[in-house]
Design a protein around this nucleic acid. Structure first.
Length: 556
RNA sequence: GCGCCCGUAGCUCAGCGGAUAGAGCAAUUGACUACGGAUCAAUAGGCCGGGGGUUCAAAUCCCUCCGGGCGCACCA
């Protein structure tokens, strides 16, 4: 029995009880699965599942929690597959399933395979996920890498919930940052130090050299301005190619690389401004053109066209947002570093100005900073000096799986400390190996089972009676709920934590319950049924790791 | 000054208003002539930053103070 099936039965039972009680009390609103608050108790003595619905409803029904719980419990005990029901503490209802009902899940999971864990939370909804979006003025820094891991995982999770997801990279190939980049390349070409506010380091001279290799003849003929222009165009292009390749090596491939420049070159910016003007939210003052964001909760109005006639940065954002909406995206998410959180209010105001709904049509996820440590000491980074730790450095140090897992396993709301030395030398410091090992073990057990003549020709769930088996089944049952919650809260780290819990439950089961017969013991239905459970665990670990973009190896 | 995030075991971090607050690492002690010891079992380690409040029930929600990070442009 899956949790969804159990919930449906319980909800129906609750409905019957309430129908009887409502004769003497106020009618209640329609109840849902959420009201049931079905939970897997931490303490095994409290059964397989627990509900606190009696505590929640007692007051509304004009009765006390324990009495109400007793009534529910009686009704619950009639459900097929429920072995026992107890009322505990202030009014918790603890349920224990019989082994056959609980164990049936193992077969269900094996049969569903990659489908198990998927849901329909965002069925058919078009979702645009914009992340990384690092300027093409240098390699992706560590904060961007966090978003690469988290954003890609979130994309996988939304997809698992039925969403039609586009991964999008906003490429800031316009404006002053790019000019600095071009001047930095030119400075390197002339053997000059990096400009005061520019970029330095090995990658600048590398890029400059590559441009020189391609265009040595041309450069000799160009004046300084034209040479800078050539460095700008080619340098951005080369940087862009490098960034794409790094992301690909990291397992992240974007569907759309959107160039900011295209918004300026087309009439997209003018189009967006015209629309906002029609809606009456633009005004002229002090020689500039403003968007009245204070009408929508921002603390000051924002300049869209500067008094020198140039578009301010937000102009492109207006155009970009409108463009996404016109491309048909219902939900748009942008992932930004904490150093950009001051931008949220004005973007939300913009959404309102367009007549859309903030936090629905546009959501901004803020990720806190990542501190890189080496031997416990923070690593100081400077773009000008070129001392940045890149995605490649991180991957070289620990590998793609370990890097992605370390970045995705914590809430994005928390600042994260990543110690390169620690991650690099002691592999056990990263729980990804614990999870991957559990998966490899399921494969190894399956191979041994086959060699011993154990197959899946028989499945008798009533034989799965060991305590470690009911714990394992309980954890397996939770994947769909964890995926849904990770999607709703935009928190991929819940998947990682779940995988760790599952791996632990599996290792403990492995220690207690053999799949292959020992010595000259006969192959029994218990062995065969346990093979189903083993394979079901392998499936769930693979599905879970897949949502994180981490491999599930057969051997390690 | 205003805004956002954080403060939980020695360290890095989980914890959907519920029962005895958890995991990994680090420490101590056990378990392989049994499906992989990258594992398991056990011990130790906590005024959940402080103080109020809401609730049958608060690490979780609200207020306040303290501490840390990051922001508050006609920069991008």
């Amino acid at each position: 029995m899956t949790p969804a099936e159990l919930s449906a039965f319980l909800l129906a039972a609750v409905g019957r009880v309430i129908a009887r009680l409502e004769a003497q009390a106020e009618p209640l609103a329609e109840l849902t699965v959420v009201d049931l608050a079905l939970d897997r108790p931490k303490n095994r003595d409290h059964g397989d599942w627990a509900s606190n619905i009696a505590l929640k409803l007692a007051k509304k029904l004009g009765t006390n929690p324990r009495e109400l719980a007793a009534v529910f419990a009686e009704e619950f005990s009639l459900i097929e597959g429920v072995a026992s029901v107890d009322v505990a503490g202030p009014g918790f209802i603890n349920l224990t399933l019989d082994a056959a009902a609980a164990g049936a899940l193992a077969k269900t999971i094996v049969e569903l395979g990659a489908e198990y864990g998927r849901g329909d939370l965002y069925a058919g909804v078009t979702i645009n996920l914009e992340f990384v979006s690092a300027n093409p003025t240098g390699p992706i820094h560590i904060g961007g890498v966090r978003w690469a891991a988290v954003g890609d995982s979130l994309a996988r999770i939304f997809t698992a919930e039925g969403g039609i997801v586009t991964r999008e990279y906003y490429f800031n190939d316009h404006g002053a940052q790019i000019d600095k980049f071009a001047r930095s390349l030119l400075a390197s070409f002339h053997g000059e130090p990096a400009p005061e506010d520019g970029y330095g380091g090995q990658y600048i001279s590398d890029i400059a050299d590559r441009v020189v290799d391609e265009h040595a003849g041309d450069l000799a003929l160009l004046n300084r301005d034209d040479a800078q222009e050539l460095f700008r165009a080619r340098g951005v292009d080369l940087m862009f190619t490098d960034i794409k390749a790094s992301l690909h090596d990291f397992g992240v491939d974007f569907d759309v690389y959107f160039h900011e420049n295209s918004l300026h070159e087309s009439n997209a910016v003018a189009h967006a401004i015209a629309r906002l003007r029609e809606l009456g939210h633009m005004y002229e003052a002090e020689g500039a053109t403003w968007l009245r964001t204070t009408d929508f909760g921002d603390d000051r109005d924002r300049v869209v066209i500067k008094s020198d006639g140039e578009a301010a940065y937000i102009a492109a954002d207006l155009a970009y947002y409108l463009n996404k909406r016109e491309r048909g995206f219902e939900r748009n998410l942008i992932m930004l570093g904490a150093d950009h959180h001051g931008y949220v209010a004005r973007l939300m105001a913009m959404v309102s100005a367009f007549g859309d709904t903030p936090r629905y049509h546009l959501e901004i996820l803020i990720g806190q900073m990542v501190n890189l440590l080496r031997d416990g000491q923070p690593m100081r980074m400077s773009k000008r000096a070129g001392t940045v730790v890149t995605m490649e450095d991180l991957v070289d140090a620990v590998g793609v799986d370990a890097a992605r897992y370390a970045l995705v396993r914590s809430s994005s709301d928390s600042q994260l400390d990543v110690d390169l030395d620690q991650l690099g030398k002691r592999t056990n410091d990263n729980p990804v190996f614990y999870v991957q090992y559990a998966h490899a073990r399921t494969r190894s057990v399956a191979i041994n089972a086959a060699a011993s003549g154990v197959d899946r020709s028989v499945f008798d769930a009533s034989l799965l009676t060991h305590d470690s088996e009911s714990v394992l089944l309980g954890v397996l049952a939770e994947l769909p709920r964890v995926v849904r919650q990770a999607a709703e809260l935009r928190e991929p780290h819940r998947i990682a934590r779940y995988c760790e819990e599952l791996a632990g439950a599996y290792h403990r089961w492995y220690d207690n319950c053999r799949v292959t017969p020992l010595g000259d013991e006969e192959v029994s239905d218990l062995h065969r049924t346990r093979l189903w459970l083993n394979d079901a665990t392998g499936t769930v670990l693979r599905n879970g790791l897949g949502l994180l973009g981490v491999s599930a190896p057969d051997r390690m």
